[in-house]
Amino acid sequence: MQDFLELAVSATASGCVYGLIALAYLLMIRPTGIINFAVGEWAMVAAFGGYVLLTQHELPYPLGMGIVLAFMLLVGWVTERIAVRPLVEKGAGVLAPILALLGVLVITREIISVSFPPDPLPVPFAVDIQYYKYFVIGITLAVFVAAWLFFEKTVWGRSFEAVALNRRAAALMGINLSRVTAFSFAGGAAVAGLGGLLVAPNISAHYLMGVPLAIQGFTALVIGGVGRVEGALLGGLLLAFAEQFTIRYAPIPGGFAQGVPLLFLMIFLIMRPTGLLKARA
C-alpha cells in the first residue's frame, strides 16, 4: 500500500508536468490552430535557464524562476514574430507555420547544444527533495486554476475563445487577432518553460530532452481533448499513471514502457480524436 501511494504521488507529479506541456500546446492551438512541436524545446530552454541561474549563479529559487519565465515569455513572443506572423499575414495555410516551427525546433536545440556541454546538467530542487513532488503538484494546480479563471472569467480569455470559435467573426467584433496570437505564443512558451523547469531537477537539463516531452505533452493533450483547459491536466495524469503503473506492475521490459505513450497516442487518435472531454458549446 505504501508502495502504491508513493507511486501514485510520483505519477501525479509527472502527470502535472505533462499537463503543463499539454496546456502550452492548447494555449496556441485554441486561437490559431497551430500545433507547435517546439514546446518541448522551450521546456528544454527553460531547464537550461534553470541551470545557468540556479546552479551556476545560485540565485534564490523564486527569483531565478521569475527570470526564466519572463525570458520564456520573450522567447515565445519573438518566435511568433519571426516564424508565425509573417506567414499568417501572407495568408498561408495553417501548415506553413507548423513547418516553420519545426525549423525553429531544430534551430533552438542546436543553439543550446552548441552553447552548453553535451552532458546532462544538474538543476537544483526548489524545496527538499522529499517534498518536491508536492511542490510540482501545487504549482501546476495553481497554473491550471489561473488558466481556467482566465478563460472563463476574463474578457481577454473570452476573446481567446471567440477567436478559437470563429476567427473572422472575432476579428469583425473588434478583437485584435495578431495580439491574441502573440499573447498565446508568449503564454505557451512560459507554461512550457515552467514544465521544463519543474521536471529538470529529476531528469537534468539535456539538449535532447525536448522531443520526448513534446510527444508526451501532445499525447496528454490528445487524451484530454483540445476543447477544455482541464482536459490537458486530466490527459497528463492519465498518461503518467498508465506509464508508471506499466513500468511497475506489467511484466514487460522497461524499454517497452517508452512505447506506452506512443501506443496511447495512436489509439486515441484513431478511436477518439476529440479527446475525453467535449468542448463546451
Binding site: 519571426i82 516564424a83 509573417p86 506567414l87 506553413a96 513547418l99 516553420a100 519545426l102 525549423g103 525553429v104 525546433l105 531544430v106 534551430i107 542546436e110 543553439i111 547544444s113 552548441v114
Partner: peptide
C-alpha cells in the same frame, strides 16, 4: 557537427 543548425535556418528561410 553543427550543420543541423544550418539546415534549420535554411528550412525556416525557405518557408518564410
Amino acid at each position: 557537427h553543427h550543420h543541423v543548425l544550418v539546415f534549420g535556418v535554411l528550412m525556416l528561410a525557405a518557408i518564410l
